[in-house]
Nucleic acid binder design. Structure first.
Lengths: 215, 215
DNA sequence: AAGTTGTTGTGATTCAAATAACAACAAAAA
DNA sequence: TTTTTGTTGTTATTTGAATCACAACAACTT
């Protein structure tokens, strides 16, 4: 399944919640399309491939969509995350308000110097060496890397070794599995998403400077 | 020019710096491809469309590539950014080490309560109402939105009104120009990149839960 | 009941980007 | 000098997602 598609599904669902809160019960493909910025056609096709039925005239039932999207997106399972690196970014994430409203919970932070980390967020902070044990006990699947670049690769290895299966990486070096073919025994695959703030900004600089360009 | 392409160009350049630091002078398309995870063919095609010449046998000259990529990516111009919202995320960004190494500089932060913001980062903090004046004076092009969701839309409007042309949005609502057709006089276009951490995490949850699925 | 409207569902089409394939050719080797 | 090698540059092909177009048909209207 396509990355863009999954992203759209999450957007649909978020939007559907808002519509439901407003008291609506049904939506049309063009409502959804307008709202998330895609064509109605694509909305219908998305629902089509997921076998989410609509009514030939009355559009789609919001409750039905939410329910089925929850299943497709696996939202019945708990959405628990750990954070490696409790510096500026790590602690900012631990206090990130929007996680709560989305049902995402940071259940632990790990650092090489946990005694120096402020505990104001209420998230328990452990030493990195306890990660493997913690992940095993809690069956944690997803982790965030918020360590300095220099530690990123080692942290990746630790997380994979601990059994983490999905990683959101904030270090500004691109992490990939099989960097040099070392990590690929028969362990279950691990998905990595890199959020590279520098790269995003550079992209913006490129765009804003290219106004007079031939495109 | 394609977004993915631009991203690749930035990656090439970053990699080329590292190779240069290691003492290398030339690279082959397969070196670059392996390193950033694309096919050598694509590397050659990228350079081809930019008219970056290689030698039929000896590969590409690293210095030449860096120099020309700098021009293409507009890296000769200063890379200055302002930040709106000096909460957890905003201040974390102000102290983000990696910006320095990438030549990106946060030149000001704006908040509705600047007196409550710690000044430890060395970045001057102003009241939001001074943004427009500041942007005009400094000819700032790029801004980061790090305000709560509830303030995001208003901040977007303020930035556009101030003359900002590229925006990196950390609020977890997707910002777009022409949300309802209001903002589109004849002002120069403004590019928005949304970094939606919740969405990224949801995507990961989806992936890690879909192991037994038919894909 | 018959006609009209409006929306879905999907097969066909378009489009763009990635990949593959290979001719051209510079450098090294013989 | 001639041959071999290895890499570029570019054209052709493949791939896959988004868009288009329209038949099917449920609900409303008269």
């Amino acid at each position: 399944m396509n990355k863009e598609l999954i992203l759209r599904l999450s957007k649909y669902k978020r939007l559907l919640f808002k519509l439901k809160a407003l008291g609506l019960e049904r939506v049309f493909s063009n409502n959804l399309g307008d709202a998330i910025g895609v064509t109605p056609s694509l909305v219908r096709k998305d629902f089509s491939v997921l076998s989410l039925p609509g009514n030939k005239r009355g559009g789609y039932d919001i409750d039905m969509l939410i329910e089925k999207l929850d299943v497709v997106l696996g939202r019945d399972k708990p959405q628990e995350v750990i954070v490696a690196g409790c510096g500026r970014i790590g602690t900012a994430l631990m206090q990130y308000e929007e996680f709560r409203t989305e049902g995402i919970k940071i259940i632990a932070g790990f650092d090489i110097a946990p005694e120096n980390v402020s505990k104001t967020s209420g998230v328990p902070i452990y030493h990195v060496r306890e990660m493997k044990e913690f992940v095993r006990k809690n069956d944690t699947r997803v982790g965030i890397i918020a360590v300095p670049d220099s530690e990123a690769a080692a942290t990746l290895e630790l997380m994979i070794d601990s059994g983490i299966r999905g990683i959101l990486n904030f270090a500004s070096i691109e992490l990939r599995i099989n960097q040099r073919g070392e990590i690929d025994k028969e362990e279950p695959a691990c998905t990595i998403h890199n959020i590279n703030i520098c790269l995003e900004l550079e992209h913006l600089f490129y765009q804003v400077n290219m106004v007079n360009e031939t495109e």
